[in-house]
């Protein structure tokens, strides 16, 4: 056998290159399929909603049927309040349990927490809505912003927990050791060193969770219910963009259909803007190095 036989012959090489290219083509094709729906949704909503979107739409209250104009100020504010309430519940609980699972893993309890988060993230949101209805609406006797925020907060928890865990696990063990070796206590190490290092990733996870709940409709049907009027109180029903869009879209009036499109566009923009703002503020000084 000569040395030449050991190496791959030209024919073989051609075949392998062909295979490699085929796989690449499939990957590119799949990526296009991923991007297309998003672009389509974005442009279609913008095209349909843009004509009706005006300053009035953002700052005016809904007008009764028959009158033209009016806006969704109540629903926009309502959605922001619901997102705020959900964040107050979902972010701290999610991050703290994520820290527990990542930094104190190994025990039976942390495995249970992991399993439960997985199950919870797969639970249909309408069921979480019913849960919030039973726990808060039935006990307090009324639909309320609080119950809506509670339902959305619970939906956020598994996403935030899981992403926190994943991001903390990406922080090299050597960083923890460096901190502990300086005599820094365990909780300080976790909070000031490890969590800080993982912050950009955790922020992205929180954004994902917020984006997901901003458009949730089903759980709100049982909880925040909807409100034609402007409300800031947490113990009363509150309007929200998804519910308003749903109600307007199924109505028989063309004017309301247009309003629904504009509402959909505002919702998409809202998620987009939340993304930009949080990214801007939590941008770590040195995030490019992490």
């Amino acid at each position: 056998m000569t040395t030449k036989d050991i190496f791959i012959t030209d024919k073989n090489l051609k075949y392998r290159k062909l295979k490699s290219n085929m796989v690449l083509i499939f990957c590119v094709f799949a990526s296009i399929l991923t991007v297309l729906p998003l672009l389509y949704i974005f442009f279609y909503t913008t095209a349909s909603g843009f004509t009706h979107l005006s300053l009035d739409f953002l700052i005016q209250m809904p007008k009764p049927v028959g009158e033209t104009g009016g806006g969704m100020a109540n629903a926009i504010v309502g959605t922001l309040i619901l997102i705020g309430l959900a964040s107050v519940i979902g972010i701290p609980v999610g991050i703290l349990s994520g820290i527990y699972v990542a930094e104190y893993s190994g025990g039976i309890f942390s495995n249970i927490v992991k399993f439960v988060t997985d199950v919870l993230s797969g639970t249909p949101s309408i069921i979480i809505g019913i849960f919030a209805y039973t726990v808060i609406v039935l006990t307090t006797g009324s639909f309320s912003a609080l119950s809506g925020g509670f339902a959305l907060g619970i939906i956020m928890i598994p996403t935030v927990t899981r992403i926190t865990e994943e991001m903390l696990k990406l922080v090299p063990q050597s960083i923890r050791e460096a901190s502990l070796a300086l005599g820094i206590s365990r909780w300080r190490t976790t909070l000031n060193i490890v969590l800080k290092t993982a912050l950009p990733g955790i922020t992205t996870g929180i954004l994902l969770a917020i984006a997901r709940i901003a458009g949730e409709t089903a759980p709100l049907l049982f909880t925040s219910f909807g409100n034609q009027f402007f409300s800031l109180s947490l113990d009363e029903p509150i309007a929200s963009l998804p519910i308003q869009i749903y109600n307007y879209a199924k109505s028989p009036y063309t004017d309301w259909h247009q309003q629904a499109w504009a509402g959909a566009m505002v919702l998409v923009l809202l998620v987009f803007i939340i993304n930009l703002i949080v990214r801007f503020f939590t941008k770590n000084k040195f995030s490019s190095d992490v």
């Binding site: 090299p172 050597s174 960083i175 050791e177 460096a178 901190s179 070796a181 060193i193 800080k196 290092t197 912050l199 770590n284 000084k285 040195f286 190095d289 992490v290």
Partner: peptide
């Protein structure tokens, strides 16, 4: 330590 490990943030 063996590998330099300054705090990256």
């Amino acid at each position: 330590f063996q590998k330099p490990n300054p705090f990256p943030t």
